[in-house]
């Protein structure tokens, strides 16, 4: 509302369109409607996803509570390596199964041990080849699942970064043309400062944590905002 009033207060220039560009969502996150310039539509969508959704409110976003520590990153690594551990456990289990042999004395026991050892070897060879083949066959499918779950979230975050960075890089004269309201410009500058505090790696880590939380809270991760 403040933006619109300020816009109407200025005398319209001949070359200026009726609706002066204004990022309503930056001043009033709940603002509905507004002008139709692409930046307003985009920022509105972005804001509705990030500022009121998964990443919490604007104030919380600005307080840098989303910084992550290196320790958490290490935790992430251990999470990713978890499937490998399960494979090793299975291999150990197989060893246990095949090592369960009755110990009969004499020549017969020697043959028995050799025979069981041979069976065990072939089973393990097949098991390892099977693991490798299965992983290879499913890799692309798994990648596509993960990619589909994250690409649009990353895209929306990138929009926030792009819009705030581009605005901050404009000369003051162009900023004033695009955003006549001083309060709007101030809000967006503050938003840009907050965004710059979060590196690409930080953002990726935040997303990963949100995925983990979704997985724990429900069976299927709800990554698509």
């Amino acid at each position: 509302a403040g933006c619109r009033q300020a816009a109407r207060g200025r005398p319209p220039a001949p070359a200026t369109p009726r609706e002066v560009g204004c990022v309503h969502t930056a001043c009033s996150l709940q603002q509905a409607g507004g002008c139709n310039l692409p930046i307003c539509k985009t920022t509105k969508q972005v804001a509705s996803c990030f500022f009121n959704g998964r990443f919490g409110g604007f104030e919380r976003f600005g307080s840098f509570t989303w910084r992550v520590t290196r320790g958490i990153i290490s935790s992430k690594d251990s999470e990713i390596s978890q499937p490998g551990n399960s494979v090793d456990d299975d291999a150990i289990a197989d060893d246990d199964v095949w090592d369960d042999v009755s110990d009969s004395p004499g020549h017969g026991s020697t043959l028995d041990r050799e025979w069981v050892h041979r069976q065990n070897q072939f089973h393990k060879m097949g098991y390892r080849d099977g693991i490798a083949e299965g992983q290879k066959d499913i890799a692309q499918e798994g990648f596509n699942v993960g990619f589909g779950q994250s690409v649009h979230v990353g895209y929306k975050w990138g929009l926030v970064r792009g819009i705030t960075s581009a605005l901050a890089s404009l000369p003051d004269s162009l900023k004033e043309k695009l955003l006549p309201n001083v309060q709007c410009r101030g809000q967006l500058q503050e938003l840009n400062n907050s965004v710059q505090e979060i590196s690409a790696e930080d953002a990726l880590q935040m997303f990963h944590e949100s995925i983990l939380q979704s997985s724990h809270s429900s069976e299927e991760p709800d990554a698509t905002l």
Partner: peptide
Amino acid sequence: VGLKNGFQ
């Protein structure tokens, strides 16, 4: 891998 790559 897809999650990481897709987000980036």
